[in-house]
Design a protein around this nucleic acid. Structure first.
Lengths: 218, 218
DNA sequence: CCTTCTTTCGGACGAACGCTCGAACACCCG
DNA sequence: CGGGTGTTCGAGCGTTCGTCCGAAAGAAGG
């Protein structure tokens, strides 16, 4: 029976959101509890009334943020069966959420490795579920004889989607709706491309491989 | 006149490479100089004979690593004029280098924000140069009337390429040559797709937008 | 053997970190 | 008004961090 504590919830939300902004800017280990204390106006020890360790604070940010992404996605996908439309919904959902919650999503994407133990496992479980939803859609969408590895395709798409915290500025770049169409176009046209039409391109001009792996080895 | 000091260079190289592995695993601020001392066998203060601050060490890793990527790319592109082949060379170069130097490349991609001041600017200058080479290729390749924003396309490609440190395991996944072909296929077929063939897809089924941005706002 | 230059290291400094404790405050129900 | 519960905080604990200093060990040539 979760009690009603609106004041408590509001303050926790302020702390989580402020902490997310600071961690997004400075990185998890460089952002100190004292920074968060200063930014929220809550005393150092007062903060520990709301979380019991810095690790738990990071978990709260990530879990809360990712939970909303997943909930919204599942709600939007409900009743939609066409794989192509399902993929467009996933892309749109991901990018819209990213652009509306850049700080939290940067923490989710960038500080994945800063979580440990139980906390890490809980968030990873959600990520696996998300990746499976995506892989299922791609499996249904995949043209017969496609040369593209499914795992590579899934994570290539995630790369496109998650990298945007490194470059996208909602006010300087094209609006998020246009970005979602661009990414949808790029990925879908690539993933659905006729496999047969490729052969001639790949057999000709093998120049990139001529150098061999020797340059890269030490 | 740079003197010959093979012993010095070899030890510096050992330090840089070992440090890269530790930083890749634990993150820059969590990896301590004492960790690097332990792993290299060089004493704590002895390390400071080879770099003058932890920040400079991070810079050495990133600058040296990215320098090799750029040098190799420019060498491979020499004399090649066909934009499609140039792009395949860039993708192959990037991925091959990534898979052969996973630790250093993870540090380069993931710890970009840990650099400050002069060091940050020096590395960012190289990154801008790299992004411009890529954008130039895409500009030459772009089909007339393409709906895709050039900046979005460039960074979508970088997202595909740089995200791999989050999932790719050279021994468990498909070989890097096959991965390069997959990424090349996905991106090129998507980027070169006939713009006209798309309209019908985009006007139908606007479901993803029905929810509106209100869910995402707070 | 002595000199000079490079390379190495034990030990320590001050600063910043995450976190805790016990006391004090604020509010509500009786 | 009194007492209980939820909330806040100043002060400080123990630890780890990046960095520095002065001395000494090794290599090389005269």
């Amino acid at each position: 029976m979760p009690e009603e504590r609106p004041a408590y919830d509001a303050k926790l939300d302020l702390i989580v959101r402020t902490a997310a902004a600071i961690i997004a800017d400075k990185g998890f280990h460089r952002a100190s509890i004292r920074d968060i204390s200063r930014a929220t106006g809550v005393s150092l020890s007062g903060l520990y009334y709301y979380f019991k360790s810095k690790d738990e604070l990071l978990f709260l940010i990530q879990d809360h943020c990712f939970g909303r992404v997943l909930d919204n996605l599942e709600r939007l996908l409900e009743g939609v069966t066409d794989p192509e439309e399902r993929l467009r919904i996933l892309i749109g959902n991901h990018l819209r959420f990213f652009s509306a919650n850049m700080k939290e999503m940067k923490v989710l994407s960038h500080e994945a490795g800063s979580l440990t133990g139980e906390y890490r496992e809980r968030v990873n479980a959600k990520k696996r579920r998300y990746a499976e939803v995506c892989a299922d859609i791609l499996r249904a969408l995949r043209p017969a004889g496609s040369p593209v590895d499914l795992r590579a395709a899934t994570f290539s798409l995630f790369g496109m989607l998650n990298w945007i915290y490194n470059w996208y500025h909602p006010d300087r770049d094209e609006p998020v709706e246009a970005l979602a169409e661009d990414v949808g176009h790029l990925f879908l046209r690539g993933f659905l491309a006729d496999p047969e039409a490729d052969r001639k391109v790949f057999v000709a001009g093998g120049a990139p491989d001529d150098a061999g792996p020797s340059i890269w080895s030490r």
